[in-house]
Write a protein that binds this DNA or RNA. Structure first.
Lengths: 233, 233
DNA sequence: AAATAATTATGTTATAGAGCACAAAGGTAA
DNA sequence: TTACCTTTGTGCTCTATAACATAATTATTT
C-alpha cells in the first residue's frame, strides 16, 4: 500500500463528493486516513466472499464489478469510471462482498477505511445523504438491468451494452470511437452472452453499418439504430 | 385516503425501524404525517413512471414490485412482507418509479410524505443509517438476482423462487406449506419463465416428490433437494 | 343456474442461442 | 527465428425453452 503525501487540495480534487460536505476538522481526519493504491491491468481489486474494509474511489483507470456465475461464466454487473466510489455496499449491508472487482486498465485507487467513513457518517448528514442517493441510483439501475438482461434478445443486449459504454466512458476526440477497448469476452460478459455470439453479433452490426470495428476499437456510426435495436430487444 | 386516528403506541408498533431512532419531538412530527391506506387484492399501488411522493410501509398483506418488460412480459423484481418499507428508492434517486407495485392480497399500508422523511433524515443520523443499510442489502440482493435469473436453468430458477418465498413469507402451521398462494403466472414472472414452463416444472417437482401441489397451495417436502437444484442451476 | 372468463394442464413445434471444433491472426516469450 | 498462448472469427450441431394450440378446470359474473 502506497501512502503518498498529498496536499489537502489534491485530496479534495480526487474525491469531491466525499470531501465537499465535510467540516474543517472532518477534512483533517479524512486526510489522515487517505491512502493510494495502484493496480495493474487485469489485476483483481477484491474478490467475492472477502470482507470489505475500505471505501474505494477510482482516481484514474477503469474498473469492472462482476460475479462468477454458474459454470465459471462471469457476469459484469457494473463498471466504474474515475471519481466514482465503490466497494462500500457490502460493508453497509454488514456482509462480505458478493461481487469481485478488477481493473480493465491500469488504475489508481484511493482507499479510506470504512470505520473512518462510519465515524464521518455519524457526524455528517449531508454525507449520509450522498450515500443514500448513490445507493438509490445504483439500485434503480440494477433493477432495470435485471429485466434488460433477462428479456431482451442478443442484439438488443449488445446494442444496450455499447450505448452503456458510451454513456459511461464517453467517446474519443473523433466523437464516435468508444473510449474503452474491451475484449470480446468482456463485452460478452457485460451483455450476458457467449464470446462467440458477441463476436458474431458485433460483426453483424458492422455489416449493417451500425458500427465499425478495428480490433478492439469500436466506432458508433448509427447511434439511432443502436437505440432502436436496444429498445425493441 | 383514510386518515385514522392512531395512538403513538400503535404507530410505534407499526413502523418500529423508522420510529425507534427518533426523538420525542421527531415522533410527534411523524405522527402528524402518518396516514393509512387500504388496497384490494391485485390492486395497483403505484405505476412505472409515476412520481414518488410517499414512503410506504406495509402493515399487513403482501406486495409485489415488478417491471413490465419486452412484449408485455412482466418480471417480479422483489416482494414485500409486512413491516417492510418500499417506494422510497426513486425519491432518493430523484427520479420517477422504474418499477410498479401491486397487492398480492388485501393490504394495509402506512404512507409518510417523503419531504417529512427528508426533514427527519437531515436531523437524525441513525435514521439515515437505517436507509443506507436497507438500500445496501437490497442492492446486494439485486446483484445476486441478476446472475441467478440470467444464468440458471428453469429448474434452478423455480427452485430458487420457492425457497425465496419460503424465506420471505414463511410457512403455515404444518411447517411445510408456503404461506403465500401465487398464481402460476406470478410464479413464472418471479422466476423469469413462461407460465407453461412454470406449470410444467412445478408438476415435475411434484412427480419427483420434492413438493406437493394442491391448486395454489405448495408444500415443500424435500427442501434439501430444492436447495441442490437451485445451487447447481 | 347458466354463461363467461380466467387459470391450469399437456402436447407439439419452432428457434434463439449455447456448445463445440477448428482455423486464422495477433501477442508474448525464449 | 521458432514456439506457444491468447484472442478473434466462422461454421455446425444440439438443446433448452419460448411460442402456439387446445383441453380441462376453476372462478367470476349475470
Amino acid at each position: 500500500m502506497v501512502k503518498k503525501e498529498l496536499t489537502e487540495t489534491e485530496i479534495a480534487e480526487s474525491i469531491p463528493d466525499l470531501w465537499q460536505p465535510l467540516t474543517a476538522s472532518q477534512r483533517d481526519f479524512l486526510a489522515q486516513n487517505f491512502t493510494i493504491q495502484k493496480y495493474k491491468k487485469n489485476e483483481t481489486i477484491y474478490c467475492e466472499g472477502e470482507t470489505p474494509m475500505h471505501l474505494m474511489c477510482l482516481l484514474s483507470g477503469k474498473v469492472k464489478i462482476y460475479k462468477e456465475g454458474v459454470g465459471g461464466r462471469s457476469q459484469i454487473i457494473r463498471v466504474i469510471k474515475d471519481k466514482e466510489y465503490f466497494a462500500y455496499r457490502a460493508y453497509f449491508a454488514e456482509g462480505n462482498f458478493v461481487t469481485a472487482a478488477a481493473a480493465f486498465e491500469p488504475c489508481t485507487i484511493c482507499l479510506i477505511p470504512m470505520p473512518a467513513i462510519m465515524k464521518l457518517l455519524r457526524e455528517n448528514n449531508e454525507l449520509a445523504m450522498f450515500f443514500i442517493r448513490q445507493l438509490s441510483i445504483d439500485l434503480g439501475i440494477s433493477d432495470e438491468r435485471t429485466v434488460n438482461l433477462t428479456q431482451k434478445h442478443i442484439r438488443g443486449r449488445l446494442a444496450e451494452s455499447l450505448l452503456f459504454l458510451k454513456d459511461t466512458y464517453g467517446l474519443e476526440e473523433d466523437e464516435s470511437t468508444l473510449s474503452i477497448y474491451l475484449s470480446r469476452e468482456d463485452l460478452a460478459n457485460l451483455s450476458n452472452m457467449t464470446t462467440s455470439n458477441a463476436i458474431r453479433t458485433l460483426s453483424n452490426f458492422a455489416t449493417e453499418k451500425i458500427i465499425t470495428i478495428d480490433g478492439r476499437k469500436i466506432k458508433i456510426i448509427d447511434e439511432e439504430k443502436l437505440k432502436k435495436i436496444s429498445k425493441i430487444g
